[in-house]
Amino acid sequence: MADQEQPITNSVEEPLDLVRLSLDECIYVKMRGDRELKGRLHAYDQHLNMVLGDVEENITVVEFNEETNEEYIRKIQRAHDMLFVRGDGVILVSPPRRN
């Protein structure tokens, strides 16, 4: 009876519970393709499809200077108001720091 009335718990029993507790918080997401996202988590599902708000995206690219044959690393920064992220590109999700 009590279980039914209290369906939403704060216990962490499986990995995705940690994601659930990060709802409406700023999270860090590492993606394939050398991309990183920071944004507020509004929705997720079991595939780690997500909707993030006020997203800051960082893309790391390697560029070559043909003349000197040197490579250098460049960061591209982009912003998105509201972003749906497909789960198959997600490597890790990090909940906000709790001090």
Binding site: D34, V62, I73
Partner: peptide, 21 residues
């Protein structure tokens, strides 16, 4: 491949030989 070698040193993951992602 070359790019991944460089990024691997900086903590980015390998893409398991996929080139088209």
């Amino acid at each position: 491949l070359q790019k991944q070698k460089i990024l691997l040193e900086r903590g980015f993951s390998e893409e398991f030989g996929d080139y088209d992602l």
